[in-house]
């Protein structure tokens, strides 16, 4: 358990790239339409979300732990599969994400001088072809396994070696 390594995956180039892709894609590339941007966002979120969950827990506790990341990767893949193939799951997702976004929409409305808006769900188009993005959830698992097998050396260890 090393404090130095807690949340290290958050700044891994693959994760930073996927996060940038997700943000740019959602708010810009998707406006051009077509099937590719939707798939790219799905892959990016499957890569990033497990690392966010694992990273948040590691940073909060100051301890490294792979279990949360692996669990989050499996859960993200399961959710992605269900919301694209099972209507009740899609409905729950629409309501849930709508609730998550509600405070942000509310704050934006207050800034604009409008009143607090009512809750509204998001709209999701179920698309079974999105299942092709599921292997994306293996990327954070692979990165975490790689990190576990090549752990960063604590600074005090390096110092000891040099002294020897």
């Amino acid at each position: 358990m090393r404090r130095d390594d807690a949340g290290a995956l958050l700044v891994h180039p693959v994760i930073l790239g996927a996060l940038a892709l997700w943000a740019v894609n959602d708010h810009w590339l998707k406006t051009f339409g077509g099937w590719l941007p939707g798939k790219l966002s799905d892959v990016a979120c499957l890569i990033v979300i497990p690392v966010l969950v694992g990273g948040a827990i590691e940073l909060a506790t100051g301890r490294r732990g792979s279990r949360w990341l692996f669990g989050a990767a499996a859960l993200a893949a399961l959710i992605m599969a269900l919301i694209n193939t099972w209507a009740p799951a899609a409905w729950a997702y629409e309501q849930g994400l709508g609730l998550m976004q509600w405070p942000f929409h509310g704050l934006a409305a207050l800034v604009r001088g409008d009143g607090w808006p009512g809750h509204r769900s998001v709209v999701l188009t179920m698309d079974a072809t999105d299942l092709v993005t599921l292997p994306g959830s293996l990327v954070p698992v692979w990165l975490e396994r790689r990190r576990s097998s090549h752990p960063a050396k604590p600074i005090c260890d390096r110092g000891t070696k040099r002294a020897a």
Binding site: V48, I49, A56, D127
Partner: peptide, 30 residues
């Protein structure tokens, strides 16, 4: 880990959750 490195990780974490919350789940309807 330096304070700077730790701050960077928290920053990425915050940006990641903001992206998740602001995600346009409304995929263009086809």
């Amino acid at each position: 880990m330096t304070r700077r490195a730790q701050a960077l990780r928290w920053l990425v974490l915050a940006f990641g959750f903001a992206t998740l919350c602001a995600t346009s789940a409304t995929q263009p309807a086809r």
